[in-house]
């Protein structure tokens, strides 16, 4: 695929939220990602559609997997990738998010991949910089590439979304992964359930187009996909749920509870996992688990997103 012959796929400069994009745009990214799965499995993994482009990964929150996934994706497409470790930067000296972003913007990058602990941070940056902004997770708002990679993983196993029952289980309240997945799976035609204690459900969740369940017994019944969310340990004690052992007893996924779902149900987790809390090791590493595959799809989806957005940058990205 040459750089000039690529048709436009997205109607936007940035990828900030799944809520913004149409199902058609999502499907185009998934289709393109399928091709990058193949590319990534070749000996020569390079597909130099981003040669000469600069990608800056700006991570205000520690992340191993998402940041390295974006880095590998950019490099396979031939972009020059810079990781900005925020702990070493001016941010720790009191410079604001926007000052940092404007400084980087002045260095003419083509992509800014940003993760930030505050909801709306990516949106704020996108309003002020001229390059393409990719939201790699903003607070409790959205994590669009995670939803896309989850959808790609599901589609490769289940072939279609129509009629699929997807149970998203755990800390929905604090989860940007849950929000992006709810929006995307709804757009694609799946039937989404959330399963969590009421203290871990956001207010008004019933209006998100999901079925709300408070127990794994009802929530997993007949599910095609069981998507576990990470429980943040600092939120475990007292404030939201009484204890780890109580949470494990009622909301942990083990071989027994998994039997409630369909026999061929897929087990997913965005990582990093708390083994023995929200998910047991034998399930996480078992035959139904696609958790490793999710990581592989992550690179392909991010290659597709970078490629798709680069098609909307005028003048080779130097303008």
């Amino acid at each position: 695929m040459t750089r000039d012959a690529r048709p436009p796929l997205l109607k936007r400069q940035h990828l900030l939220a799944i809520d913004d994009i149409s199902s058609l745009e999502a499907i185009r990214i998934l289709d393109l990602a399928e091709r990058y799965v193949e590319v990534s499995r070749q000996t020569d993994k390079r597909q130099l559609v981003l040669q000469g482009r600069t990608q800056v990964n700006l991570f205000f929150e520690a992340s191993t997997r998402t940041q390295s996934s974006f880095e590998i994706a950019g490099k396979r497409l031939g972009a020059d990738v810079m990781n900005m470790a925020v702990a070493n930067s001016a941010v720790s000296k009191g410079e604001t998010l926007l000052d940092t972003a404007m400084t980087i913007n002045a260095m003419q990058p083509d992509f800014l991949v940003v993760r930030h602990p505050s909801s709306g941070a990516a949106e704020l940056l996108a309003q002020k910089v001229s390059c393409a902004v990719i939201n790699a997770g903003d607070g409790q708002h959205e994590h669009p590439t995670q939803a896309l990679l989850d959808a790609l993983t599901i589609r490769r196993h289940k072939k279609q979304f129509e009629g699929l029952i997807v149970a998203i289980c755990g800390d929905v309240l604090h989860s940007r992964v849950a929000r992006s997945n709810i929006h995307l799976l709804n757009k694609l035609g799946a039937q989404v359930r959330v399963v969590a204690p009421s203290t871990l459900l956001p207010s008004g969740i019933g209006n998100f187009g999901v079925e709300v369940h408070r127990s794994m017994e009802t929530g997993l019944k007949g599910a095609d996909v069981v998507m576990m969310l990470r429980l943040q340990l600092e939120r475990m004690t007292g404030a939201f749920v009484p204890s780890i052992r109580e949470y494990y007893r009622f909301y942990g996924l083990n071989a027994e509870t998994l039997k409630i779902a369909k026999p061929d149900a897929m087990v997913m987790h965005p990582g990093p996992m708390n083994r023995g809390i929200e998910i047991d090791s034998d399930v996480a590493d078992g035959v139904q688990s696609v958790i490793r595959e999710q990581v592989e799809m992550g690179v392909a989806v991010r290659m597709a997103v970078l490629d798709a957005l680069s098609r909307n940058i005028p003048g080779g990205g130097n303008s």
Partner: peptide
Amino acid sequence: NAGETASRLGLSG
């Protein structure tokens, strides 16, 4: 304000 709008924006209510 707590409610659906806050939940959609991922902001605490």
